[in-house]
Design a protein around this nucleic acid. Structure first.
Lengths: 214, 214
DNA sequence: GCGAGTATGTTGACGGCGTCAACATGTGGC
DNA sequence: GCCACATGTTGACGCCGTCAACATACTCGC
């Protein structure tokens, strides 16, 4: 999804904007980044795109549609983060199985995205229907990278097959919950180091809770 | 906190309402129950209290103050739920240690509150500063009942002392995350039975992840 | 090449919201 | 009994989402 104005293309004309949908989405993303989902406001997005308030209705079916688009964008960025982390995992010296290291890396990527892109993450969280019914299928990149890691763990004999189906959501719940508690909850302003400790403790709980007993 | 209009007290006068703060809070709670935090709207609350729009400003310092009050109310209700569940736990035949059963009951109470009082739970979740800095101290009832259960588990030798401090937040993260995924996330409309399975699987992950190895 | 049809953007309006200032009306303390 | 204060009202402002009616530019078939 290309967000920024296409660089060298035809310059926007006087009347017809040319790339209004993209410009509105870019404005919406910026609004979300700064102010969270509630800040994704149609009139302001239109203003930033240099266009009248109601022009947005030619491209988005109302405010929630724009929020939904921003949400999808946020999901894409999050997915890329997680995939990049999973790909890089194992570079450092680590005696544990690669699949476990990868699962941990995914969790850490999720949390770091939540903390570094708070507004975007919050927008990704809001209660709009997930894009095209993400659901539990692994065709969604963000969820897919998680299920792949768990598949690898199952293949390695580290995950009991009978919990293979519930494991991704249980793990996701723990990491997601921790992210939310750190953003909106009582952990909003704990020192960085304490928060990191909590990250590690939660990841340990997830791993110990999922792995087969040695 | 008394929410409803005091039954047999002095009837509201013509000009001075008499119990406007309570009436506004009650209206706010009702709005939150139906529509979540965004539905907690000053003008509508005032309307329901039979009072002009700006009268609310004599009792609440703007909209966020009313939302905050509703949030505190929601936290109280949630705490009572959890405490009641913890107290009742162990009534059913269960061969496991009482402290473990209690911890499970608390988690289930949290989830059932989230599902049965969606609007209120969502309001409780919003990113306003927790009432009087709930933080990690166990003087908050909802958090206290959790730490007590974990203390009991530690005393029973079921929880390693070195994770005693991080355990409550790790456990809370998992249960909270699952609740959110069920309300706003991809698990919004899975069948009840699948959701219950997921509950149990997540609780198992938490318990296995926290308990010392037998 | 050109004209009709459509895509895109504008103006104006409506009601709802939060919020402030100025004003009105009760209530309680002296 | 009177005055200060608490409480509630009115009116206004600017923001928002949204709709209908209108204006302009592009495009495609001829």
């Amino acid at each position: 999804m290309n967000i920024s104005e296409p660089a060298g293309e035809v310059a926007p004309r006087a009347y017809h904007h040319g790339h209004l949908a993209e410009a509105l989405l870019a404005a919406g993303v910026e609004l979300a980044r700064v102010g969270g989902p509630d800040a994704v406001v149609l009139r302001e997005a239109a203003r930033r795109a240099g266009v009248s308030a109601t022009a947005a209705y030619r491209h988005f079916d109302g405010q929630t549609a724009l929020q939904q688009a921003v949400k999808e964008y946020a999901l894409e960025v999050l997915s890329e983060h997680m995939q990049a982390a999973a790909a890089q995992a194992g570079a450092a010296a680590d005696t544990r199985p690669a699949s476990v290291v990868r699962l941990e890396a995914i969790g850490r990527a999720y949390l770091s995205f939540a903390l570094n892109e708070r507004g975007l993450f919050r927008t990704f969280c809001i209660g709009l229907p997930m894009p095209e019914g993400v659901s539990l299928d692994s065709d969604q990149p963000a969820f897919g990278v998680l299920t792949q890691a768990l598949d690898a763990m199952t293949a390695d004999g580290l995950l009991a097959p009978e919990i293979r189906l519930t494991a991704p959501l249980a793990a996701w719940s723990a990491v997601h919950g921790l992210a939310i508690l750190c953003l909106d909850g009582p952990l909003a302003d704990i020192p960085d180091q304490e928060r990191d400790n909590l990250f590690e403790a939660t990841l340990r709980m997830v791993l110990h809770g999922l792995l087969v007993r040695p």
